[in-house]
Structures are given as structure tokens and as C-alpha cells.
Amino acid sequence: MLTFIARRLFQSLFVMLAVSLLAFTLFRFVGDPVAQMVGQETSIEDRERIREELGLNDPVHEQFFRFSKNLVTANFGYSYRTRQPIGEMILSRLPATLELGFFSLIISLLVGIPAGVYTAIKTGFLSTTLLITTLVGISIPTFVIGIALIYVFGVQLNVLPVFGRGETVQLGWWKTNYLTVDGWRSLILPAVTLGIYQLTLTMRLVRSEMQDVIKTDYIKFAMARGINYRSVYLHHAFRNTLVPVITIVGLQFGGIIAFSIVTESVFQWPGMGLLFLDSIRYVDIPVMSVYLVLIAFIFVLINLLVDILYFVIDPRVRDRRQGA
């Protein structure tokens, strides 16, 4: 188990290296960093001096090394647009995105998985209705769902706040929504907006995996042994669908991060997505590249977690990896 994790860590390191190379290329070669930093009237000599100070005349591999070292020590540099340290900017916005993303992931799993199992093993009115709903669900763009929710709950019924985080509580540097009533009320609409798409994806995936498993011989054999249906479906079949489902849930977290950009834009939720969007609009390259590295880091962590879960669930994986 330990060697296996060590190996995965090693591989993750490679991925991070590749991503930071990409981020470095972005940072160094897309546009001229100096031109972005200084005004029009700066003289050529001054520009050259700044180049030298920033080390932009050093050999490229040295620059890359410095760039990576800065990343590892969380020294992310300054934004072209706001002139603030990027680390602070991100830190102040990270909790908002994580809390929103986590809550909508919970919604999508808690509803999506049972609904997927149900539609796989039962046919009938409810099942059909759910399936039609999911088809509509994956077809409506997130931002349209957000707008519709705002219109109904914010404008027409006027029962829920439609933008911003509302009242929050400061825990150290972490600003949380989870501790106030107003915070929860503000969270509902964006989280539902973000969760619906993932929910339908989860449900459709669980359903198709479950349908595949139900057709296997070992499920038929369990049926032929008279094991009660509940156990056949929940104990035997569902367990076997978990492996692919976990993979996708891992990927879904990516989807959540991505679509949080849209949701944050619709609800003016002050998270990282909004920050990223602004950095694209204003070609704020340093923020873009740090965002990229950070997202990659989160994905690597999640993938690691997914691999460890495989290990726990599937005895075949355990044996193969230990034998190797």
C-alpha cells in the first residue's frame, strides 16, 4: 500500500511539473511581462533595467527553476491588473468557491446516486419521469438555470437572496457561509444551480453502470440462488458499480470547479471563478497561470484519493498492486 502511494505521488509530481511548465510558458511567453507592468511613457532603458531586475534575461531553464521554486513556496507574484499579491487574492476567494462546490457536490451525490440506482432497476412512471428530467437537465445551460432561479425565487417570490455571499463568519483567514442562517440562504440558489448539471450526470452514469452490472453472470447467479432482491441490487450490484462511479465523481469535482466559474458569474459569488474570469477578460496572465497550477494541484489530490479508494473497494486492485 505504501509503495503504491509512493509511486502515485511520484507520478503526480510529474504531472505537476508538466503543468507548471505550461504555466511558465504562459507566464513568460504570452505577451511581454514588462510591457504589462509599466506605463507607455517608461523609457527603453528603464524597461531594460526592469527586465534585468526580474531576471528575464537569465537563461530560460533558470527562470523556470525560479518560477517553480516560487510556486512551491507559495510566492505567486503580483497581478498585472490589481497590483496585489496573487496569493492573498486567491486565499481570500478560495473559501467561497470551496464551500459552494462542496455543498453542490453533496447535493448531486445524495440525490444523483439513489435516483440512478432507482431508474436502473425499476421501470414505470417515476423512472421515466426521472429520465426525461435528466435529459432536460443536461440540456439546459447552467447560466439559464441560474437566471430562471433568480427570476422565480429572487424577483417573483422574493424569498432568497440572489447575489453575493450574504452574512459570513470569519474563522482565521477562512470566511464561512456555513455558520449563519443568511449564509445558508445565500448558498442555496448558487449551489442548486451548480449541482443540477452534476446531479443529472451522476444519475445517468450510475444508471448505465448499474444496468451493465445487472446483466453480468454473477448477478444472474445471485438471482438463481434466491438471494433477496434488495441484497442483490444494493450489496452485490451497487458495490460493483462503485469503481467506475468513483472515477467519475473524481472528475466531477473538476466539472464543479469549472462550472463554478459560470455560477459565480451569474450570482456574483466572490470566488476563484470570478477572479479567473476577470483575469481572462483583462489578460492578467500571472493570475491565469497560478489559477491553472492551483486547479491542477487540486485535481492531482483528488486523483490520489480516487486511487486509494479503488484500493479499498476492489480486492483485485489490492492484489495486483501488492504483487507488483
Binding site: D217, F221, R225, H236, R239, D314, P315
Partner: peptide, 25 residues
């Protein structure tokens, strides 16, 4: 009928590779 399956009638399938649940002992 379901109670009778396994109890009074049982079945053996062709391929032992696929007729056992891989995740359970």
C-alpha cells in the same frame, strides 16, 4: 418462485470467471 430458487432448484453457469461476484469473498 424467488424463495424456491437456490432453495430447491439451483443453477451452475458456463463461465466460472464471470459467475462469482469479484468484490465479495
Amino acid at each position: 418462485y424467488h424463495r424456491l430458487r437456490g432453495n430447491r432448484i439451483s443453477m451452475i453457469f458456463q463461465d466460472p470467471q464471470t459467475s462469482l461476484n469479484p468484490l465479495l469473498t
